[in-house]
Amino acid sequence: MATSILSGLPSEWALVKRHPSEKIFGVQLAGGFADTMSKAAQIVTENMEVDFIDVNLGCPLDAVNDKGGGCTLFNRTNRLVQVVKSMSQVLRDTPLTLKLRYGLKEGQHTAHNVIKRLVDDCPPQLLTLHPRSKGQRYTKSAEWDYVPKCAEATQGITPLWACGDVLSYEDYYTRLETYPISGVMIGRGALIKPWLFTEIQERRYWDITATERLDIVQNFVNFGLEHWGSDDPGVETTRRFLLEWLSFTYRYVPVGLLEVLPQMINQKPPLYRGRFIYLSLCASWALGSVATND
């Protein structure tokens, strides 16, 4: 939130701190007014190491929209133009990008009008479309058929990316080859299976084991403790983000359980026993035996 950055809120400033392992790092700002958004963008770029600044026009949460940001700013085109113009003036060489949904209500597609207005008055360096409405949140499938109309609205001036329901290398390359877009953004897919980018690069499905997935969780925790500290506040912050992330990872369906590839992003796994469940039972039994003998 731009206002939280300007007020110096430590928890918000922790989010814009770049880790040495991050090759590309951008900061997405949410807000509804030109003065606060431009000041926040200037402060972040002058004090942090960032590759680009993104304007959040797609967040459906009331906490963001009530402050004029997210989808609310998307729906106020005149104010949005002011925000983009002001931010562009202070950012100078730092690219400015925007991510937006297709509209406020399901079936009411207005993003192409907003895109055309932006391109005519103050074209950003990149636009990303999430073809769902504010009301949909993440329910139902993303409406990729609407992407070409938005691509036409860019008039070839601003590159257009799109996102929504990409969870496999097939999803990625099919959308990139089928639709008139310059790139594909991945959101929930990266949270559900962080190894997705390896699959895309190598064009294959990775039947990753439970042990390998647990190693990824361990790395996540270690990074969190390194970032926020290993004292009580650091542990609690790391735990909070870990639990939020795990609310996505549990949706992963192992490749061996799928009847048809690829997995759909809203697909739920059938009832099954994991390949390591008997090993876990044996370990539990052994520990119980040791405790009894002692």
Rank of each mutant, 00 (worst) to 15 (best):
N65I: 05
M37A: 07
D62V: 13
D121T: 09
N56S: 03
T36V: 11
K23M: 09
L80H: 11
L29R: 08
P95M: 12
V81Y: 07
G69K: 01
T110Q: 11
K85I: 14
S88M: 14
P20T: 06
G68Y: 02
L57S: 03
G70Y: 07
I115E: 02
A30V: 03
T36L: 04
D62N: 12
V81L: 15
L57D: 00
V50S: 04
L80E: 11
L96R: 05
L104F: 12
S86G: 07
V84H: 06
E106V: 05
T94C: 15
T77S: 08
G58V: 00
L61E: 09
S21K: 11
F33G: 12
G69L: 02
K67C: 12
L104I: 15
H109A: 10
K39F: 00
A111T: 05
A63I: 14
T36Q: 13
L98D: 03
T72A: 13
Q89P: 01
T45S: 14
I53Q: 04
S88A: 15
V90D: 10
P20Q: 07
A34S: 15
V81P: 06
V50Y: 05
T94E: 03
I24T: 10
F74A: 13
I43R: 04
G69F: 04
A34Q: 14
G107H: 09
G103E: 05
T72N: 06
D62W: 12
V83C: 14
K23T: 14
L91D: 06
T45P: 00
K23A: 14
T72F: 06
L118E: 03
L118F: 05
N47A: 08
I115Q: 00
V50C: 03
Q82H: 14
K116R: 13
M87T: 14
T72V: 07
P20S: 09
R117L: 10
E106N: 09
S88P: 05
A63N: 11
V84A: 07
F25K: 08
F52Q: 11
M87S: 11
P20Y: 06
G31Y: 07
E46Y: 02
I53K: 00
T97Y: 10
V90C: 10
L98M: 14
V64W: 01
S88I: 08
D66C: 13
G32R: 04
K105C: 10
A63K: 14
Q82Y: 10
T36H: 09
G70P: 06
V64L: 03
H109Y: 13
R92P: 01
V44W: 00
S21Y: 04
I53V: 15
N75Q: 14
K85L: 12
Q42M: 08
S38K: 05
A111S: 13
L104T: 13
R76C: 09
L91R: 06
N78E: 15
K116F: 04
P60I: 05
K105L: 12
L80G: 14
A63G: 00
E106S: 12
P60N: 06
D35A: 12
Q28A: 05
L100S: 02
K105Y: 11
A34H: 13
G103S: 06
V50E: 04
A34I: 12
R117T: 15
E106D: 12
A40P: 02
P95F: 11
R79F: 07
